[in-house]
Design a protein around this nucleic acid. Structure first.
Length: 873
RNA sequence: GGGCGUUUAGCUCAAUUGGCAGAGCAUCCGGUUUACACCCGGAAGGUUAUAAGUUCGAGUCUUAUAGCGCCCA
């Protein structure tokens, strides 16, 4: 066995071996195995791996490997997303670097370039996922723009159209001027920014004026009304009169509406229905005209009069200058408000009238709400259900058309009729018969195809065998940031098209952040690149760290130091395996000897092990994988390795075959179970280590998941061993305190008693763990040894004769401190047990535990008292 | 404005149904004891944000306040 785990050599080799054996495929399970399916959240096909991908990979691979070990037909279906806007932007940037643009090269050429870009980039991210150990069924990999998925998307669109759930029409939408496309509400992010609030006079016919405040003066040019509150004494007399749009001199009505906030600004509101969502509603109510003043690039159009052609912000300045000259301005002041920006481009989004395709979403949303209410879909953690409900209950129709070129083209054709070039609309798979039909240029929102992902990837709408066997899926693991974008839409589409929720459980993870909660970003230079970590430490430490650093639904602050710790944990596992391996000496019988043939340490470690398995199972059941990982680590590093492994050397290094064999079998068994438990967390190192201990299976990846053997859990054994280990710790402390050379073997005496005799029988424990040569019993009534330090644990008193090293004053101080501690604990236990309510109402086990403690503490205190009296006059 | 989360050791985070608050890193002390210096043994570090309440018992449940973060308008 190699001295260290060579992850760089082992990872690719082991990964290929797994794949060549077909273990990533659900067909490797028994034919009648229950399926367990996760659809991978498809990363952008041209993206590169970041820490968020690493987190989902670690979690989903953990879930898949766990269920595979439990004998399920585990299918983790991978794929990539064409990511409309993101990818198109990347290609446009390439073109810009070449000094050209998409409009210059044209539609066909642009698509060809984008496909070429996808082929060049595509697969990079998939290769990166494989480096992390993702056990996906790569034969089933899909891409949202592949033929099958495209057909599914078109089918879904046509079906919704035929059901009357898709309509096309002019609406106020969020318009991204940089991208020249509509975007959905979700793709707009509003954050508070410092802007200017402009106060000005709105002239009224007859020479009067109304003061109005706005943050966007250029929209004055698109005003079609001024609104005031009907009960506002300041302006009541003006209601019904006409206001005059500054510079343009256009007449618009002054209307009254109680939606106007009298407190804000001047209490009067300019109404720009074509460029503001609230104003749009107001305009519908009052039947006001809609006046679009912007071009698609957010420059001013002809309606802006002399400002036509100016950029919106240039227009803002120039108009304000002109209004100042016209003595219409009052003042400006700094103001903080939320500015809507495009999630992708980052530029300020303008509400704009535009003809778009919409999904009438309410009927779909109703089903999605009902499914979660009925528990047919479970969201972990549960609090996200509230957020989910709130969004779906207030949902707006979904604008699904995008004025992009990269995506699923909307399957609609137009033909001129009565002078309207779009007078006739046809929706279908292919162009309708007849002349003059022109296909729709717009493509669908990327999330439209993503919404179909759990079933489109399995062959839907065809009734494929995969669809029958693997749908609905079991687990949807993804980030809580795309609960609306993706999860809710999958639930809606899944229920609508397949009559089944697309998955049973939604597990939401948080964002990975840097120390102090700051976002990872390239500009801050604080990004942890998963591939750099994998190069340096291997995939396993990254995976283990990511999983054990957070809890479901909460952001995790990744501390790079923990990566090193995980790396060292893997080394620890390797060394433990190595130790067991080199002490085997040939074949051994698998399984455990009968429990009655086992010694105390063996029974102790098996009890602890099975308790661990039980806890881990519970934690997996409630999706607390991080805590499970930490508990396995704690067991191995704090109990198994430092105590059992050390103690077992006694049996392994001496001559008797029976105890040697027993020790070997216990060691192999416990290490085997630990490696199994850890496999979903760190697949490479565990698989590789497992080869070096005797086992019956082919590979750890398909070995059985451990089940706790409750018979082996033994409270009494654990308590006995715990007391012994406490003696060990005390002896170590005492040695340290009196500066006893660590290499020096010392003698120990114990005052006779049942526990002491028990301890004496296990003298090798003290020998191995604290370098005590032997433990002799001091007959009852015998004098205490002179110049001895003493330690008291429960009813065990151990004397360490330390002639020449013992400082009586220091020992007295130590004992007094110990006594103080014991006395405090004793007082606490006494107080609790004196409380009738506690005794009557607490769980009996808790009361009993406290009684036992009281007994131990009382005994310890008595011995300490006596010791102090003898030694320290 | 509405909602959600969070506040625990210097830093990053745990704590399973309420039952003696724990890790890692950092700090200090001591060790090459033949699985491991990628290690071992020890120490120190806490009024669990604040204030009330429920309970025999609260980090955990309730209410209020404050800071931080997120979502929705």
């Amino acid at each position: 066995m190699p001295r260290n785990f060579d992850f760089a050599e082992a990872e690719p080799r082991v990964y290929d071996w797994w794949q060549e054996n077909g273990w990533f495929k659900p067909e490797s399970a028994a034919a009648d195995a229950e399926p367990y399916v996760i659809s991978m959240p498809p990363p952008n096909v041209t993206g590169s791996l970041h820490i968020g991908h690493a987190l989902f990979t670690a979690l989903e691979d953990l879930m898949i490997r766990y269920e595979r070990m439990r004998g399920k037909a585990a299918l983790w279906l991978p794929g990539t997303d064409h990511a409309g806007i993101a990818t198109q932007l990347q290609v446009e940037k390439l073109l810009a670097d070449e000094g050209t643009s998409r409009n210059e090269i044209g539609y066909e050429e642009f698509l060809q370039r984008t496909w070429q870009f996808k082929e060049e980039q595509g697969g990079a991210i998939i290769r990166q996922l494989r480096r992390l150990g993702a056990s996906c069924d790569w034969d089933r990999e899909r891409f949202t723009l592949d033929d099958g998925l495209s057909k599914a998307v078109i089918h879904a669109f046509i079906t919704l159209w035929e059901q009357g759930l898709i309509y096309r029409g002019p609406r106020l939408v969020n318009w991204s001027p940089g991208l020249r496309t509509a975007v959905s509400d979700l793709e707009v992010e509003s954050n508070e920014e410092e802007v200017t609030l402009y106060y000005f006079r709105y002239p009224v016919e007859g020479g009067d004026y109304i003061p109005v405040a706005t943050t966007r003066p250029e929209t004055i040019l698109g005003d079609t009304a001024v609104a005031v509150h009907p009960e506002d004494e300041r302006y009541r007399h003006l209601i019904g009169k006409c206001a005059i749009v500054p510079i343009l001199q256009r007449e618009i009505p002054i209307i009254a509406d109680d939606a106007v906030d009298m407190e804000f600004g001047t209490g009067a509101l300019k109404v720009t229905p074509a460029h503001d969502f609230d104003d749009y509603e107001l305009a519908r109510k009052h039947n006001l005209a809609l006046l679009n003043i912007l071009n698609k690039d957010a420059s001013m159009n002809a309606e802006a009069g002399k400002y036509a052609g100016l950029d919106r912000y240039a227009c803002r300045e120039e108009l304000w200058r002109d209004m100042t000259a016209a003595r219409l301005t009052i003042k400006t002041e700094p103001y903080v408000t939320r500015i809507p920006r495009s999630q992708r481009g980052g530029e300020v989004v303008e509400p704009m009238m535009s003809t778009q395709w919409f999904v009438r979403i309410q009927p779909l949303a109703d089903k999605a709400i009902a499914a979660v209410r009925a528990g047919r879909v479970k969201i972990v953690p549960k609090r996200f259900e509230k957020i989910y409900f709130h969004w779906l209950e207030n949902i707006q129709d979904w604008c699904v058309s995008r004025q992009l070129w990269w995506g699923h083209r909307i399957p609609a054709w137009y033909r001129e009729k009565d002078g309207d070039p779009e007078g006739e609309i046809y929706v279908g798979f292919e162009a309708p018969r007849g002349d003059g039909w022109v296909m729709e240029q717009d493509v669908l929102d990327t999330w439209f195809s993503s919404g179909l992902w759990p079933f489109s990837t399995l062959g839907w709408p065809q009734e494929t065998s995969d669809l029958g066997r693997f749908y609905p899926t079991q687990m949807m693991e993804t980030g809580h940031d795309i609960l609306f974008f993706w999860v809710a839409r999958m639930v809606m589409m899944g229920l609508w098209f397949t009559d089944t929720p697309p998955f049973h459980t939604v597990y939401l993870h948080g964002l990975v952040r840097a120390e102090g909660g700051v976002k990872f970003s390239k500009t801050l230079g604080n990004a942890i690149d998963p591939l750099t970590v994998v190069d340096k430490l291997g995939a396993d430490p990254l995976r283990f760290t990511l999983i054990t650093s957070g809890t479901p639904g909460n952001d995790c602050h990744l501390d790079e130091k923990r990566l090193d710790h995980s790396f060292r944990f893997i080394n620890k596992i390797w060394q433990m395996t190595s130790f067991i391996n080199m002490n085997l000496d040939g074949e051994i019988e698998l399984g455990l000897p009968p429990v009655e043939e086992l010694d105390l340490p063996s029974r102790w470690i098996l009890s602890r092990l099975n308790r661990l398995i039980e806890n881990v199972q519970y934690l997996f059941d409630i999706h607390q994988y991080g805590e499970a990982g930490n508990q396995i680590l704690a067991f191995m590093w704090d109990e198994f390795a430092p105590f059992f492994l050390e103690i077992s050397k006694h049996a392994l290094y001496q001559g008797d075959l029976a105890p040697k064999t027993a020790a070997r079998r216990v060691l192999v068994h416990a290490q085997d179970r630990c490696l199994r438990l850890l496999h979903p967390f760190m697949p490479f190192a565990t698989e590789e280590a497992w080869r070096f201990i005797p086992q019956a299976g082919n590979a750890l990846i398909v070995a059985d998941w451990p089940v706790a053997e409750r018979d082996l859990i033994d409270d009494e054994i654990e308590a006995r061993m715990q007391a012994f280990l406490e003696v060990v710790r005390e002896i170590r402390n005492t040695r340290g305190e009196f500066r006893v050379d660590p290499g020096r073997r010392i003698q120990a005496l114990a005052r006779d008693g049942a526990a002491a005799r028990d301890l004496a029988r296990h003298g090798h424990i003290l020998a191995r763990l604290c370098n005590v040569d032997s433990l002799a019993l001091l007959p009852a009534g015998a004098d205490e040894p002179p110049n001895a330090a003493s330690i008291v644990v429960g009813d065990i008193t151990v004397f360490l004769p330390l002639e020449g090293m013992l400082d009586i004053a220091a020992e007295c101080e130590r004992l007094a401190a110990e006594l103080k501690k014991i006395a405090q604990q004793l007082a606490r236990a006494e107080k609790m047990l004196a409380n009738e309510n506690f005794v009557a109402r607490a769980q009996p086990a808790v009361v009993q535990r406290e009684r036992d403690r009281l007994e131990d503490l009382t005994s310890a205190k008595a011995q300490l008292d006596e010791r102090l009296a003898n030694l320290c006059p």
